[in-house]
Every structure is written in C-alpha cells, then in structure tokens.
Design a protein around this nucleic acid. Structure first.
Length: 379
DNA sequence: ACGACCGGGGTCTGCCATCGCG
DNA sequence: CGCGATGGCAGACCCCGGTCGT
C-alpha cells in the first residue's frame, strides 16, 4: 500500500500544481504520456480511487457519484485522459455542462487518447456536416460514441452500410437516429442484413438486397435490435394473421417494417388487445387481417392509448366500420382527435355523408376546412 | 379547387448480462 | 477476479404535405 501511495503522490503533485496554474495544455501532454506506459501495475490498489483523477473530475463539474455508480473501475485507473478529453470536446464546441454530463454518464470516455478521439471524430464527420451535430448527439447519447474503442470497425461499418446502397442522406438519418448502429461490430450488422435477405428469399422475394435496404431505411432502429427479436415478431405476425408468404413480404416492405422492433411481448399484447377490443365492438375475427395490413402501425399503439382513441372516435359519432375502412385516423394523438371532433361538432359536420378523412390531414388543412365550413351559411 | 391516397419525417437511451482476456 | 467490449433489453406515435384524379 505504501508503495502505491508513493506512485500516486508522484502523479498527483505535478497535476495539482499545473491545474492550479491552469496550464491545461501541459496537463494534456502529461496525461497522454501517462497513457503510454500501459502499465497494469495499479492492480495492487484496485480498491482505491485515484485522488488526482477525482480532483480533476470535480474541476470539470462531473457528477462523481454517478461515475462511481456506473463505471467504478474507471476511478481506480492510474492513467486517464479527462483533461485531454475535456479540451478536445470544448474545441468541438461542447459546453462545460455538456462535457460534465458526458463524462458523468459514460465515464470510460476519459480513457480514450486524443489521437483516438480525433480519428473517431473524423470518421463521424464523414457522415455529419458539422461538429455541432456530433456534439448534440454526444450530449444525447455519450455511450454511442464512446462505448467502442475500435475505430477500424467503425470505418468498416460505414463502408458496409454504403455498400448496401444507402446514400448519404440515409446514412445521416441512421447515425442521427440510431447512433448505436455504428458501434455495433461489423459482424453484428452483417448478421442482421443477412437475416433480412434470408427472410426475403424464404418468402419468395426476388431482390433480397433491395428488401434489406428498404427495411433499414424504413426502420432506422432495426440494426440495433437482435435478430432473435425481429424473427419472433415476423413469425408471430405470420401466425396471428395467417399470412401467405407474399402478403407477409408486402407487409414487411411497407409500413410493417416499423413494428419489427417492438419487444415480442408488447407486440403480442397489443395484438391480443386489438382483437379483443374490436370483437367487443362487434367486428369479426377476420377484420383483423385487413386492419393490420392496411395500418400496421396500429400494433405500435399500447392498449390504453388505442382503446381510448377508439372510444373517443365512437363517442364522437363515428362508427367502427368507418374506422376499419380508414384506420389511419388512429395515427393522430387522442388530444388531436378530441380537438378535431369538437370543432367538427361545432360546425355540424356529418360523418355519415362526408366520411372521416377530414381527421387524417394536417392541422393547416383541417383549419382551412373548418374555416370554410364556418363561413358557409347553415342550411 | 378539392380531397383521397400515400409516403415520408421526427425521434431513441440507459441500463444490465455476458464473454474473453490478462 | 476485474475490466473493457459488446450484445440485448424495455419503453411505446404523431404529424405533414406532394400528387393525382375529378
């Protein structure tokens, strides 16, 4: 123990002095030289936290309690690069608060060298136009950027995704929406793509590559789901609805892609709920198939939300038959539906005569319509 | 001029489990 | 064993407007 404290003291003293004088650059260099030793010596002190590190983190405004809770091992490391990281991020335009928040939420970030960070940043910049975009994603999800230290893998991933035919706009949306995709191992991403291609093949599709690409661009989360989950959902859809191969393929290529990443239990639960609810409302079991094929996103809506939307529509004078014909009206929030129904009632809108398409339009169009109806003399 | 049809766009992490390695 | 890397999970919609046929 004594020997270890000695080593700690050697590191600690210069750090403190330099910090007090605010010579950040010097500290940075010091930090990176500390890195090079790559020693595992501190094993001896595996139960002790690095005091100078703790001090640095406090200076940066990091929530040390959170760090301790998330990745306690990081605090015991002798060699870290918190100041280098902080400076790096600051130069990219991150505020002090953002930096503190990033380190608090993903402490391992401070183990990356500046060279590593620069390389990784460059790779991300292949997809993003500005540093600010990247900073905003790091603020949102530090883990996505820092969890992997394998830059080569990242580079290969980007190349792989491009090779699938995804253009730069797709790539941009993908990395913005599901940044974790890029930290997956290349192998994992390949597995999902191959899985999708196999599905297409099995269902008699003639362009598996196009199919995979289409599913990915429609469901940007698909690559961060397990093939196990996606497979179970596909199997369940097929069984529940007794779909033919061609029907299933069409569903998956269309809006059905979105529901593949629901958790298996949630999908089942929602399916059962829809079935129960519409039977309660006097529909037949085979209305389900048409309903879901026409509007797969209904499976996305949880039981309480869906039921209250339906009740709301029914109470507003719309029939379940009309809803089955135009299920897309369920796309809108309950709030939105309620407000529209009130407006429509005010102007005496006749759903039986005019249908319910008015509910499936933008507010702008809706308001214009209402205005026109209000101006019209009552008959 | 109007409305039905249809597709697209936004948005999504933070935690735990497991494995391999030194 | 402890750590880093990686896989996997639960969570649970909403809104807009181009276009084309009439």
């Amino acid at each position: 123990m004594a020997a270890v404290s000695g080593i700690r003291a050697l590191i600690k003293v210069p750090n403190l002095l330099i910090l007090q004088q605010s010579f950040r650059l010097t500290l940075l260099q010091l930090a990176s030289t500390r890195h090079c030793s790559g020693s595992n010596g501190p094993k001896l002190a595996s139960d002790t936290e690095n005091k100078s590190l703790l001090e640095n983190l406090s200076l940066l405004g990091v929530d040390v309690k959170m760090v301790r809770q998330r990745q306690p091992g990081v605090l015991r490391k002798a060699f870290t690069n918190e100041m280098g990281l902080a400076q790096f991020l600051q130069e990219k335009g991150a505020s002090r608060q953002i930096i503190a928040s990033i380190v608090s939420r993903y402490p391992r970030a401070i183990t990356r060298s500046v060279e590593h960070l620069e390389q990784r940043w460059r790779l991300w910049r292949n997809v993003f136009n500005t540093d600010a975009e990247i900073v905003s994603i790091l603020g949102r999800s530090p883990e996505s950027f820092f969890r992997s230290s394998d830059n080569e893998n990242l580079e290969k991933n980007i190349a792989f995704l491009i090779s699938l035919g995804l253009n730069s706009k797709d790539l941009h949306r993908l990395l913005t929406t599901a940044p974790r995709t890029f930290s997956n191992s290349l192998e994992l991403n390949k597995q999902m793509v191959e899985f999708l291609e196999d599905i297409c093949h099995e269902l008699g599709g003639n362009d598996p590559e196009q199919f995979a690409k289409s599913v990915i661009s429609k469901n940007l989360y698909i690559l961060i789901r397990s093939t196990k989950r996606v497979k179970a959902n596909i199997d369940n859809l097929k069984t529940f609805l007794k779909l033919s191969d061609a029907e299933l393929l069409a569903l998956l290529q269309g809006h059905g892609a979105d529901i593949l990443d629901l958790s298996n239990e949630y999908l089942k639960k929602n399916f059962k709920n829809i079935e129960q609810k519409i039977i309660l409302l006097g529909c037949k079991k085979n209305d389900m198939k048409k309903l879901i094929i026409n509007y797969p996103m209904i499976l996305y809506i949880g039981p309480s939300t869906l039921n209250s939307k339906l009740d709301c529509l029914l109470k507003g004078g719309i029939t379940i038959k009309q809803i089955l014909e135009k299920p897309k009206v369920l796309d809108y929030s309950k709030q939105n539906i309620t407000e529209r129904l009130m407006e429509l009632q005010r102007v005496g809108y006749d759903f039986e005569k005019n249908g319910i398409n008015i509910l499936d339009s933008s507010w702008k169009r809706f308001a214009a319509k209402i205005e026109k109806l209000s101006d019209l003399p009552e008959e």
